[in-house]
């Protein structure tokens, strides 16, 4: 379902960007990075608005679950939809689905939520590797493999 997932660190530096499809092509890599980074502004905005509404306590009913880690649909283009998730430790997880592919066009919110939750679990496991330094890119082939299978099997 997903065409691309990304893990972005506290300082907005990408820790991991993985995609499926023609992986070797540079074009794909670039468009992937671009897609993920367009979502970052929307993501920050969402976070700030959640903080202010919490303090003002002027909450409307649709925004009651602002303390939820899952932020929902951030941004959609003609061909892609971008979903975001921010952990308590300010790690941003971004998932991109393609609206042109048959499985990605009518994807449910709950499915994306589970996928991002599982990605968070995988990330936490990868970070617990004692050889991994915080803030470094994630180069673990095991993590890569698990994420790829997560993207493929529609959760």
């Amino acid at each position: 379902m997903a065409v691309c997932v990304a893990v972005i660190g506290k300082d907005n530096a990408p820790l991991y960007i993985g995609g499926i499809g023609n992986d070797t092509s540079t074009d794909n890599e670039l468009s992937r990075q671009w897609l993920v980074h367009t979502a970052l502004d929307a993501l920050e905005e969402r976070l700030v608005s959640s903080n202010t509404t919490n303090t003002n306590s002027a909450t409307n009913t649709t925004r009651t679950d602002l303390r939820d880690l899952y932020l929902g649909l951030l941004y959609s283009t003609d061909s892609h939809k971008i979903y975001g998730y921010v952990t308590n430790t300010r790690i941003k997880l971004v998932l991109v689905t393609s609206s042109t592919s048959p499985s990605g066009s009518n994807i449910r919110d709950a499915e994306v939520r589970t996928a991002l939750r599982r990605l968070h679990a995988l990330y936490a496991d990868a970070i617990c590797n004692p050889f991994h330094l915080p803030g470094d890119q994630i180069t673990s082939p095991k993590f890569d493999k698990q994420v790829k299978s997560l993207m493929l099997n529609n959760v």
Binding site: S50, N54, L66, R67, D68, L69, V86, T87, N88, T89, I91, H120, A121, Y123, A124, I127, C128, P134
Partner: peptide, 15 residues
């Protein structure tokens, strides 16, 4: 640092 990533996984965002 590492424990925190695991522990806060199921937690809502801190106010």
């Amino acid at each position: 640092y590492k424990i925190m990533e695991r522990l806060t996984r199921e937690w809502p965002r801190f106010k």
